[in-house]
């Protein structure tokens, strides 16, 4: 009797879960379906769920409408540079806050935490003016550097470095290793798990960034993927088949990173809770 009821509730739970995750994932399925449809099927009502005559023409034609090769190069370059810089600077600062007692360390740390209260949306007008003043509008630097200093990264690295025993550092000091050597040869290799979490979030944030490119980019050669996708739509008419094909391509790198590092994603959230 009891086992029977349990079975039913377990079955019902699976049904609920399958329904929820299908509904959650449905927009992506719809994107894939549209991307492989010929125009005649894209603009057809009522719509088909599965393309009757699947085609790759959306990918081929869509790719040539905007300089997508360049766009992907730009986005990859910006994302990688920013991720490496961000992770490096955050671990330097995080290490200092975890393992040194220096005059003003509390003040500086609070200052960094306080910037969590100041999203980019608040400062976008002066950042735009500032980039204009130093001639960084419409440049790679202008897309990379404003996003490098992430308070959350410093916080994450500090929490992680605190778990590393201080004796390890002191022993190396007694061996005569310089502070920088200790950091690079002993501490940084130990920080790989935290660095992985940080790098993934930084990758995600940078690849998906929209507002900063929207303000900084003026010419087509500097377009990033999100800005390119938003410009793909016409004033009056949009070829949704081609747009969905390009959207699908833009998701693939994120999807690969997600599948490869799913554990880190989840762990990162429970570590810090924040981000976004």
């Amino acid at each position: 009797m009891i086992t029977n009821r349990l079975k039913i509730s377990r079955g019902a739970m699976y049904l609920i879960l399958i329904a929820i995750s299908t509904a959650t994932f449905f927009p992506f399925l719809w994107m894939v379906s549209t991307a492989f449809k010929p125009a005649s099927e894209v603009f057809q009502s009522p719509p088909n769920f599965i393309p009757q005559k699947p085609t790759l023409s959306n990918f081929i034609i869509g790719w040539s409408i905007l300089p997508f090769g360049r766009i992907f190069f730009n986005t990859t370059f910006i994302t990688v540079t920013r991720t490496v810089l961000s992770a490096f600077l955050a671990s330097l600062a995080g290490y200092a806050f975890a393992k040194y007692r220096f005059w003003g360390h509390k003040f500086f740390f609070l200052l960094i935490l306080a910037t969590l209260m100041i999203p980019f949306q608040l400062t976008m007008i002066p950042v735009f003016l500032l980039l204009g003043k130093i001639g960084w509008l419409n440049t790679y630097q202008g897309l990379i550097f404003p996003g490098v200093a992430q308070a959350f990264g410093v916080f994450l690295m500090r929490q992680y470095f605190r778990t590393i025993p201080t004796e390890l550092i002191e022993v190396s000091r007694l061996d005569g290793a310089s502070e920088f050597r200790i950091f690079f040869q002993i501490i940084l290799p130990l920080a790989k798990p935290a660095l992985a979490v940080l790098a993934i979030f930084s990758f995600q944030g940078s690849w998906n960034e929209f507002l900063l490119p929207l303000i900084v980019v003026e010419s087509d050669w500097l377009l990033t993927i999100q800005l390119g996708l938003s410009k793909f739509r016409g004033e009056l008419w949009t070829d949704w088949g081609q747009l969905m094909a390009m959207t699908l391509i833009s998701i693939i790198p994120v999807m690969i990173v997600f599948l490869a590092f799913q554990k880190h994603f989840i762990k990162g959230i429970s570590l810090t809770g924040t981000r976004g």
Binding site: Y95, F108, P126, L130
Partner: peptide, 28 residues
């Protein structure tokens, strides 16, 4: 060295924070 080192460690981050967050906040 230990006295200066932590400041060197936080310097790059603080510098970017200063330029791209704190200055814009005052500016706004």
């Amino acid at each position: 060295g230990i006295k200066v080192v932590p400041y060197l460690f936080i310097l790059p981050h603080m510098l970017l924070l200063f330029i791209f967050v704190l200055i814009p906040v005052v500016w706004v």
